[in-house]
Design a protein around this nucleic acid. Structure first.
Length: 550
RNA sequence: UGGGGUGUAGCCAAGUGGUAAGGCACCGGAUUUUGAUUCCGGCAUUCCCAGGUUCGAAUCCUGGCACCCCAGCCA
């Protein structure tokens, strides 16, 4: 395993060793304006992982300072997703819990001459902010005295003004080369009700002002966020330096996660969902946690993925293969095996007595005896995979062909004795003879049979729907395209409606993972019914034969 | 063109002046009642480039280059 420690943990190690801190307190601070995705999983694993490994604490804190975009639906899904991923927060907090304290701190800032009410409109403020290369101009209201500011700010709170009439600004430096320091707005008037505080407030604090104080109030030691907030750190520190807060957390920035062939931005995810390009936030093609869950990714696989990708300050684009590998590794170890035929071809065992049948033992997991066995019904007519037969096979084709012998997994050795065709020459049915002495699949005389194929008894199989997924986008970095929607993969979902699965699969409960032998990992979909099971393919098995054919 | 960051293999990522970890991918080979898994072996004479310091540099210095972020009353 990777024994090296990321740069954030190195900082923590140093802080603990130097006595700066005696323990860690972190937090995962989502805004409840969308569903969690794989990028959030990285942050969750980082913050909660630190609490776990250092014996520290980690809060779940909603950054709910913008009532226009946030809702309770999102807070519910976020709580659920964090728990599903396997983490438990020490305390559940909301930035809105601190609105009163935040307000009092703002008055203090005003009294200290560090904030003022600006009565310019948004456009004027924007124009006077300057540009990347030119300094801004000071507001005509910048030197209002504290008394006047205080009165105005109180009247803002009291609801005496309309949206946008005034704002509260930090009084810092309009000539700063860091635009965030050019007297940033810290309070705005919004006459909208908040999903938690209702109509108690009509002024709402801005992120930069809220986040640092919230961290301080919670005693956060290390405030971890993504790279785009690096420029905001001077402001984070400035606010805390002006006030008598309980502590001064250290903000540390790390690179957000990008994964090839998908998008990880709330805006784009939202667009995919609301424009109907996918079937909802839990569409199995989406990198949302709910989508990944429906796709069959396990919490352990996602946590493992987050461990593997590391934490750095370098903009990184991770290959899908890493995520898939994490899933395969977890699923290979834990998912019970079963047999399913995706593209059925009928086989009739000519020398198997008509009307006869028997039950054969099969291991639920060949490498994990504790998973037990199940019984597979076998009979004269079977379904096998169409691609497991070739009339004119190339050399090293280990499967079925006229005259060749193959093993039916856990059943018998069979030899192909005949091929039936339709008028167009398509293969419609195979005739085979079985070796009655090979019950279970081993040759009585020790003869070598290289190929083993899967099968489902035609008389006992259950018709199922299988949904096969491919990457959602055709290009590795769709977000870089001018129109990311134009990069959508039209074949990202293929639905098979005429698959056959073994009868034990019929009652599969949603979220139950399986490995369909030789085919891949599948998970039962919430749409699944005993009379009509539905499975989503999580990932294929690696296929060195398939790759060889290309 | 102001400020803040980042450059180590195809993709991630260790490395913190002593001679390039690990994972994914890829390529061999062994085992196999899943062409899966597992196992074993291979995979950077070189760290964005150019100079310099040093017995010794991915690590220090100087100068370039490339890429990312910032001008919401979003977070």
């Amino acid at each position: 395993m990777n024994e090296s420690v990321n740069f954030i943990r190195q900082i923590i190690d140093r802080d603990l060793a130097s006595g700066k801190h005696t323990g860690t307190v972190t937090r995962f601070p989502p805004e409840p304006n969308g569903y969690l995705h794989i990028g959030h999983a990285k942050s969750i694993c980082l913050n909660f992982g630190i609490a776990r490994d250092y014996g520290g604490r980690c809060n779940l804190r909603f950054d709910d300072t913008n009532p226009e975009k946030e809702s309770e639906e999102y807070t519910r899904s976020i709580e659920q997703d964090v728990r599903w991923l396997g983490f438990r927060w020490d305390e559940l907090r909301f930035a809105s819990d601190y609105f009163e304290s935040l307000y009092q701190y703002a008055e203090e800032l005003i009294r200290r001459g560090k904030a003022y009410v600006d009565s310019q409109d948004a456009e004027s403020i924007r124009l006077s902010r300057g540009t990347l290369t030119q300094p801004g101009r000071e507001s005509p209201h910048r030197d209002r005295d504290p008394e006047e500011n205080l009165e105005l700010f109180r009247r803002m709170r009291a609801g005496e003004f309309g949206d946008g009439e005034h704002v509260l600004r930090a009084r810092i430096d309009m000539a700063s080369s860091n635009i965030n320091m050019r007297d940033p707005v810290i309070y705005r008037i919004r006459h909208v009700s908040h999903h938690r505080t209702g109509d108690a407030w009509c002024i709402y604090p801005m992120y930069d002002y809220t986040h640092c104080i919230s961290d301080a109030l919670e005693g956060i030691t290390h405030s971890l966020c993504t790279l785009e907030f690096e420029d905001h750190r001077p402001l984070y520190d400035w606010v805390l330096d002006q006030l008598d807060v309980p502590c001064h957390p250290q903000q540390i920035e790390f690179a957000r996660l990008n994964v090839e062939y998908t998008v990880v931005s709330k805006r784009r995810l939202n667009q995919l969902v609301s424009d109907g390009h996918v079937d909802g936030w839990d569409d199995p093609r989406l990198p949302t946690l709910s989508g990944l869950r429906r796709r069959g990714y396990t919490p352990a696989a996602i946590r493992d993925f987050c461990d593997r990708i590391g934490v750095t300050k370098k903009d990184a684009m991770v290959e899908m293969g890493v995520l898939e590998n994490s899933a395969r590794q977890d699923l290979d170890a834990h998912a019970p095996r079963a047999m399913a035929v995706l593209d059925p071809l009928k086989v009739v065992i000519e020398n198997y007595p008509e009307g006869d049948g028997e039950l054969l033992d099969a291991a639920n997991h060949p490498k994990d005896p504790s998973q037990g066995t199940r019984q597979l019904p076998f009979s004269r007519e079977l379904w096998i995979e169409r691609e497991d037969f070739m009339e004119d096979p190339p050399k090293k084709f280990f499967r079925l062909a006229p005259g060749s012998e193959v093993r039916l997994r856990y059943a018998y050795l069979v030899t192909c004795t005949g091929v039936l065709h339709d008028a167009d020459g398509n293969v419609t049915e195979l005739r085979c003879r079985y070796d009655p002495l090979s019950r279970g699949g081993s040759a009585p005389d020790g003869r070598k049979v290289k190929g083993t194929i899967h099968w489902v008894s035609a008389a006992h199989g259950v018709g199922a729907e299988l949904r096969l997924y491919d990457r959602l986008f055709l290009v590795p970095d769709p977000a870089a395209a001018s129109d990311f929607l134009a990069q959508l993969n039209p074949d990202s979902r293929r639905v098979i409606t005429d698959a056959w699965v073994e009868p034990s699969l019929a009652p599969a409960a949603p979220d139950q993972n399986y490995q369909f032998e030789r085919q891949g990992y599948f998970v039962a979909d919430p749409d699944s019914r005993p009379e009509r099971p539905v499975f989503n393919r999580t990932a294929t098995l690696r296929d060195s034969w398939g790759e060889q054919k290309k």
